[in-house]
Design a protein around this nucleic acid. Sequence first.
RNA 1: GCUCCCAUCGUCUAGUGGUCUAGGACGCCGCCCUCUCACGGCGGAAACAGGGGUUCGACUCCCCUUGGGAGUACCA
Length: 462
Amino acid sequence: MTIRTRFAPSPTGMLHIGGARTALFSWLYARHHGGEFVLRIEDTDRQRSTDEATQVILDGLQWLGLDWDGEPVFQASRQGEHVRAAEQLMDAGHAYRCYCTREELDAMREEQRARGEKPKYDGRCRHRSQQSEDAPFVVRFRSPDTGETVVRDMVLGDVEFNNAELDDLIILRSDGSPTYNLAVVVDDAAMQITHVVRGSDHLNNTPRQIQLYQALGLTPPVFAHIPLIHGPDGAKMSKRHGAVAITEYRQAGYLPQAVVNYLARLGWSHGDDEVFSVQQLIELFDLAQVGKTAARFDQQKLDWLNAHYLHHSEPAELVDEVARLLGVDTSNGPDLAAVIGSLQERSKNIVDLAEGARFFYIAPCAYVEKAVKKNFKDDTWPLLDAFVAAAEALPEWSPVSIHALISKVCESRGVNMGKLAQPIRILISGGPVSPPIDATLALLGRDETLNRIRDGRTNMAV
RNA sequence: GCUCCCAUCGUCUAGUGGUCUAGGACGCCGCCCUCUCACGGCGGAAACAGGGGUUCGACUCCCCUUGGGAGUACCA
């Protein structure tokens, strides 16, 4: 049997890191087994679903490289199937109309809570006599009162639920639209999903869904409830707790393979290994190796992995993204790939890289005050003048010759390289940080270098 | 409150009864390298939540406590 997994986000909020990991695990499992991975947008809540959220989901998955098979299925378009299933359930006596009003239900729950009971529907409409035809109603699933339902979970093992704990859930709203539990079951069955990989926040729904499968005469898929990702404070990922749309990571300069690698290691491991290519992930990933404990989101480790991938990238691969985030015209300056090559090992993300590259294309108009104070002494300008004079006469402008030149000037004056390198660095970049001075000057070019040093004298005098 | 899940360094984790004086990684501290910032190299501090069992022997199995999390909607 072909393995088929799905990712079924609801477009009511942004796709964040937790949802992305669920998608990743689901995708990896399918790809590992040579199966299929499909996408279903759960938009049955028409009020709260938005096109923007759908777009973020699609963009996010694409950016991460999680490709899906076939076209995405929009759940709302399958309402006919859902209603048919509900009717089938009613015909078989597994579902019934409930005419309770919201006020009635609220009052009931309030009483139960006051008595210290678990709030749940008491089934009062199971045998309620005929109502007038035009009274609004919902359809409820008739849940068994006795026995137990066991969820066989690939991550958690067997989890038993007492059926008495489960109340009669609504499967069709009063407007005739299906609710989540009915729609997932009908659609997962119709789409022939073999393995349902989802967050463990869905574990409590699972016994009800299993009952629905049984009542509809369907075979339940295999379930795998993966632990949730918590924010840095240990609470559930939410908008208030560091949950940002996955697409924001791109804007913040993260590489998709770093995010994928980080996410994979949150809950899954393979011995002591830390760095995995997507290919290796597909080869090695197994739901059986997924742990049961919730993980906290650790930005620093993501940063480390991102830096790792950044340092091991070919500059050419980075050019487009750096140019996009840099947002300045680079056509009249040094080759961007070469600039990236000089910068990548000292950057931890693309934003860093782009900022570090900026001065190669735009001359500084101000200098970091603290750095000036620290590096400009009485003997600094004479030293710079000596450097400029020698630089003008230098036959070849290359890292090696520049290095030799700086070193020679410093030696003749009996000072170490920092005495000259730092002032030059400040004058050409505006601050005390840049790639090695020889490489930087070579990239910038002789004319631009000397112009910036000369301009520096006037700028600083002001 | 009730139901369900979880519990190894600060964080992510290895560990599936003896090989554990518990391993790796991030972060942190120190040293080296050095023209700045980084990279890199070397070294260091740092954990089995507590209590009962089971066993010749528990980080590993069972129970309780404690702690954390999720659910408890005409959301998904």
